Amino acid sequence: MIINVHAGHSLKCRGASGLLDEVNEDRAVKNKVIELLRANGHTVYDCTDDNGKNQNSNLKAIVNKCNDHKVDLDVSIHLNAGGGTGTEVYVYSDNSKAKDEAERIVKNISNTLGIRNRGVKTTTKLYVLRKTNSPALLVECCFVDNATDKAKWNADKCAKAIVEGILNKSVNEHVETPTPKPQSNASSALGTYMITASDLSVRTGPGANCRRKTYEELTKNAKAHDYDKDGCLNYGTRVTVSEFNGDWAKIPSGWVARKYLKKV
């Protein structure tokens, strides 16, 4: 699957707060959801906005990020407020293609955390559900101002429940991230790198549908971070790696062997 995931609100336009803080907790859930989905072979885009100064700019930024990608599902993660208890999931209408996932998610969160199942609800008023191009759902994980919900809250367990609802199968909660073997030909991890091997052939994504490509295919009219029809990354003549914790072999939707890259 190809999936957009984002946490609601921004660091400058924060959401609900009480016994829990929505912005802190929804980002913890979002990060774990993305980790688990990627570990299970799916392409995930993080469409979270941290910079919106008000509700309108925040929502527009999120939707613009979501609509930059053609995906199977948009997932918006929030926490609720207002004195209630339990979890609920919103979709745009009863005909939404995200409704099956929504029903599984709300059931899973309720059962996992031991809180009330408030069900799947429809609304045309939520901007994210109204403006995203792909099937979308919005998860209200629990209530930030309810003592019962707070006592039973666990971000990692909630994230696992969401992922299992999306995929309709069980997944492991703890994911071990492989550590790349050190290479002697790299003096620095950060910067821009050029693909140099004329016989380069790499798998361009984690899924079974991602085909192997030759150097010529990869570099012909390709730009770094373009995606093909399978949602797989097309590696251009240059790839910039500056945001993956020094692991410059790792590109968002796949892996390139370090021996094929030269710093420029």
Score class of each variant (00 low, 15 high):
residue 86 G to E: 11
residue 86 G to K: 15
residue 86 G to M: 13
residue 87 T to I: 10
residue 87 T to L: 12
residue 87 T to M: 11
residue 87 T to C: 15
residue 87 T to R: 11
residue 87 T to H: 10
residue 88 E to S: 13
residue 88 E to N: 15
residue 88 E to V: 04
residue 88 E to M: 12
residue 88 E to F: 04
residue 88 E to H: 15
residue 89 V to M: 13
residue 90 Y to D: 09
residue 90 Y to H: 15
residue 91 V to E: 01
residue 91 V to N: 10
residue 91 V to D: 02
residue 91 V to S: 10
residue 91 V to R: 14
residue 91 V to C: 11
residue 92 Y to V: 06
residue 92 Y to C: 05
residue 92 Y to L: 14
residue 92 Y to F: 08
residue 93 S to M: 00
residue 93 S to V: 01
residue 93 S to H: 02
residue 94 D to F: 04
residue 94 D to Q: 08
residue 95 N to H: 07
residue 95 N to S: 13
residue 96 S to A: 09
residue 96 S to M: 09
residue 97 K to C: 07
residue 97 K to Y: 06
residue 97 K to F: 05
residue 98 A to L: 06
residue 98 A to V: 10
residue 98 A to R: 14
residue 99 K to C: 04
residue 99 K to F: 02
residue 99 K to T: 00
residue 100 D to R: 12
residue 100 D to P: 07
residue 100 D to F: 06
residue 100 D to L: 11
residue 101 E to H: 15
residue 101 E to P: 10
residue 102 A to H: 01
residue 102 A to E: 02
residue 103 E to N: 05
residue 103 E to V: 04
residue 103 E to H: 03
residue 103 E to P: 10
residue 104 R to T: 07
residue 104 R to I: 02
residue 104 R to Q: 07
residue 104 R to V: 02
residue 104 R to P: 06
residue 104 R to G: 04
residue 105 I to G: 02
residue 105 I to A: 07
residue 105 I to D: 01
residue 105 I to T: 03
residue 105 I to V: 14
residue 105 I to E: 03
residue 106 V to Y: 02
residue 106 V to T: 15
residue 106 V to P: 04
residue 107 K to M: 10
residue 107 K to H: 08
residue 107 K to Q: 11
residue 108 N to F: 12
residue 108 N to L: 08
residue 109 I to T: 07
residue 109 I to D: 04
residue 109 I to R: 05
residue 109 I to P: 03
residue 110 S to V: 06
residue 110 S to G: 15
residue 110 S to K: 08
residue 110 S to F: 02
residue 110 S to M: 09
residue 110 S to H: 06
residue 111 N to T: 13
residue 111 N to Q: 13
residue 112 T to Q: 09
residue 112 T to R: 13
residue 112 T to Y: 09
residue 112 T to H: 09
residue 112 T to G: 12
residue 112 T to V: 15
residue 112 T to M: 15
residue 112 T to A: 14
residue 113 L to N: 05
residue 113 L to H: 04
residue 113 L to F: 07
residue 114 G to E: 10
residue 114 G to N: 03
residue 115 I to S: 05
residue 115 I to R: 05
residue 116 R to E: 08
residue 116 R to L: 09
residue 116 R to V: 11
residue 117 N to L: 14
residue 117 N to K: 13
residue 118 R to G: 01
residue 118 R to W: 00
residue 119 G to A: 01
residue 119 G to T: 01
residue 119 G to D: 01
